[in-house]
Simulated scan of single mutants.
Amino acid sequence: MSDDPLLRVSALSKFYGPRIGCENVSFDLWPGEVLAIVGESGSGKTTLLNCLSTRLMPSAGSVSYRMRDGEWRDLYHMSEAERRFLMRTDWGFVHQNPADGLRMAVSAGANVGERLMAVGERHYGNIRSTAIDWLGRVEIGPDRIDDQPRAFSGGMRQRLQIARNLVTHPRLVFMDEPTGGLDVSVQARLLDLLRGLVNDLGLAAIVVTHDLAVARLLSRRIIVMKDGHVVESGLTDRVLDDPRAPYTQLLVSSVLAV
């Protein structure tokens, strides 16, 4: 890992009127590190993810990102165009519902190719061959390159969304319940695939999940949230094997009791 973080989050808060979305969240994320944010529904984890990825403007606090040239930029002081460029190039966002992260009316190859064109690739042959290579990496056959995502199963759509996000070799990927809504057997394959790709590419990732098994498999470090606040954080194995906060103990024991 690099000596310098990739992302610095300081006292981040988001309020919806009197209701707390998240409050006073601070952490650093290093290049190549996978951080899981866990908690039950309504814990604030998705609000936090949307603030980190600039989909939501926070009520207070700051998030700074280290650009490729080493310069630190406050994400909320960047222009809308600069943030959009980051989302197309340096970042990826994997939605729980793949239809939210894909263009359903164009082909699988076009979904992957669009990201390449966003970083300046213009040669049709190169775009198509790279798309075929990436479809193969996510276990989609080359014969499906001209099929639209609407002809794919849920698991295939999610794998296509992952290929679309990773084809530009982003430095940071946000994942919102990436295995939510999938059958258990499909989840297992997808998690195995994700873990391999994240390791191979050296990606940093922030993964929101309510599933502690997903957090354990994918992440090195974990943040546990309840009612918009961080109640515990640390190395994933330590937190899940020896939880200290009563809420984390309850989460872990409820999984064991199933």
Rank of each mutant, 00 (worst) to 15 (best):
V9I: 07
L56M: 11
E139P: 12
S254H: 06
V252R: 06
G154D: 14
A118D: 09
G21Q: 08
S43A: 14
L182W: 05
R244W: 08
R164T: 14
M104T: 00
L29S: 01
A99F: 09
G180S: 15
S129L: 07
R19I: 05
G120P: 10
L12V: 02
A188R: 02
D143A: 12
E71N: 12
V34N: 08
I145M: 15
D90T: 11
R159D: 14
D211T: 05
V258S: 03
H123T: 02
I140L: 12
Y65A: 00
S79W: 14
A99I: 05
P246N: 09
R8K: 15
M57L: 10
P31C: 03
S53R: 02
V252T: 10
T248K: 00
R238D: 07
T89H: 09
G234M: 03
E114H: 04
G32A: 04
G155E: 12
S10K: 14
I37H: 01
L217R: 13
V198F: 11
I37E: 01
G39S: 12
P31I: 03
M78E: 11
D143F: 12
M225S: 03
R150E: 04
L12P: 00
I206Q: 05
T168C: 03
V239H: 00
N50K: 11
S59L: 15
T46G: 00
Q96G: 02
D90R: 10
G120T: 13
G196D: 09
K226D: 11
L250E: 03
Q249T: 05
F174C: 00
Y124P: 15
M175T: 13
T179L: 08
L35S: 02
Q148K: 15
A99S: 04
W134G: 00
L240T: 07
T46S: 10
F15D: 08
D4L: 11
A110T: 08
D200W: 06
L193Q: 10
G44C: 08
R88D: 00
D227Y: 06
H123W: 15
A188I: 09
G109P: 02
A118N: 11
M156G: 11
D4M: 03
A81E: 15
Q148R: 15
E139W: 13
L191F: 13
E232F: 14
I37W: 09
L86R: 07
V224S: 09
D227I: 12
L12R: 00
L86Q: 10
A105Q: 04
G181M: 06
L49P: 06
V214A: 01
S2R: 01
V119D: 05
A81Q: 12
I206R: 07
G202Y: 14
F174G: 00
G61A: 04
L201A: 06
G113P: 06
A205L: 11
S62V: 08
S219E: 05
G21A: 07
A245W: 11
L235N: 06
Y16V: 11
G120W: 10
V34T: 06
V186I: 08
N24S: 13
L86I: 12
R83H: 01
V231R: 00
V186L: 03
S107E: 02
H123I: 12
S59V: 09
D4Y: 08
G154W: 07
R244K: 01
L191N: 11
H210V: 15
M156Q: 13
S13P: 08
D227W: 04
F27I: 05
R122E: 13
H95V: 04
I223Y: 12
N97C: 08
F152C: 14
R122K: 04
T46R: 01
L203F: 03
V63F: 13
V198K: 01
F152I: 09
A245M: 10
